[in-house]
Design a protein around this nucleic acid. Sequence first.
DNA 1: GTCACGCGGTTCGCTATTTGAACACCGATT
DNA 2: AATCGGTGTTCAAATAGCGAACCGCGTGAC
Lengths: 249, 249
Amino acid sequence: MGTVGKAIFLLEQFSTEQPEYGLSDLAQKVSFDKATTRRLLVSLAEHGMVEQDAETRRYRLGPGVSRLARIREWHFPLQKMCAPFVRDLARETGETVHLSEYSAGTLLTVQVELSARANRVNVDVGQPLPLHGTASGIAFLTCARPEITKACFEGRMEAFTRFTHTSRDALEKAVNAARARGYSRGDQGFEEGVASVAAPILNTDGIAIGTLAVASPMSRIDAETTERYGRLTMQAAEAIACQLNGGAA
Amino acid sequence: MGTVGKAIFLLEQFSTEQPEYGLSDLAQKVSFDKATTRRLLVSLAEHGMVEQDAETRRYRLGPGVSRLARIREWHFPLQKMCAPFVRDLARETGETVHLSEYSAGTLLTVQVELSARANRVNVDVGQPLPLHGTASGIAFLTCARPEITKACFEGRMEAFTRFTHTSRDALEKAVNAARARGYSRGDQGFEEGVASVAAPILNTDGIAIGTLAVASPMSRIDAETTERYGRLTMQAAEAIACQLNGGAA
DNA sequence: GTCACGCGGTTCGCTATTTGAACACCGATT
DNA sequence: AATCGGTGTTCAAATAGCGAACCGCGTGAC
């Protein structure tokens, strides 16, 4: 791994559950030398990508990352643009809706609108979703760049539940079915008792950049509602794509 | 400059005005070798910090930066938290209000609420504000970490207008006056015809992390309104700090 | 058509940067 | 005061980065 790879790897250790690290913690977690870790952190800190608490000496993400993100959101306002669609879909279905964006091998949850019901599916912002094991992932694979699909098919497929597709064959079948249908179904592939539908959000070239998904407890779901949610999700994803790309159209 | 420094420097070239670069453009802009630039970009792309348009082959900021920013905002929701205060202050004053956060030597504009008046001051999100030349900067310096103040006093002070403080003496006087007053005044130090007041936002240690500022056209401002806006800004900044740090309190 | 230019991308020997074990430090805790 | 858990620093060894020169491709001039 190159030096910048390591530096970014450090940044990626920070999460909502673990937003701060001491030097040694972090060095151990990524198994770099303490000295190395420190030099990287100092470099990052010089540019505001991390900051060190003056008192506790612990490190956390700095203002620099927010700055970069604002620049990106400025000319590619995925989140802002999708917010109303996500809300509407959540209202129409009464279920948890989440929006994900593809990044470096997985789908990252960007936005979540939780169901108002007591029995609901919880998804966290920032949570990565495996391509092979979720409705979102399968929807994404229906229109992903060939390299990505290939890498996914050829990689190891972890089994999250006893329903997870773990063979290339099974996955390919699921993807093809989803492609034909226009939306994907995920039956407890990632978490037992959860059924989802998802549709890809396409860019101008017809390549998926992310997905929109509805996740419900199995108990509330039958073939008919699945179909209904699937259609709604698909329509919302298309509307998003339309606004993202065309503007008007 | 170390390798990670260079990598981040690349990221910092992207801005709202110039959100995309070709390889050669970028290499020339930062004056690195093309090969170097490319290697860095590839490393960054592997982690989603930049992405390359499949068609035009140009590079832009990737989803990775948004992800990191979301993690940061999650446990340090500066922007979300400040939004209502910024709006209220804008409503009370009828002028443009902007919130900045300190990062790597300057204040970065995080949020702007523009005045509804036709004749108003415009500030862009992401715009960096020099410490020595703006009301925000001076407010920040009243409670900055000593190293920062020192570096600023000893560094070169660019003159943006004929009113900019360019000597250590003048700046120090302005900072001291602001500290005594509780808020800073900036009279056309950055842009002619613009008068601002600003107050620092402090962390638990009493160190400034950012500023809140009101910017008005000179024509609408007199000593009395300046004083009024100053007080309002100060109060809002204190309220923000209180909520950021204490929670309740 | 073809020539030359500009562009993205790649190669490979040289060298400077990074590396990490060992060490120094500082503040709590016993 | 001695031990522990942590941050931060040093320096010879080695690894990773560097960049001039290179390829291949598309484009526009002539």
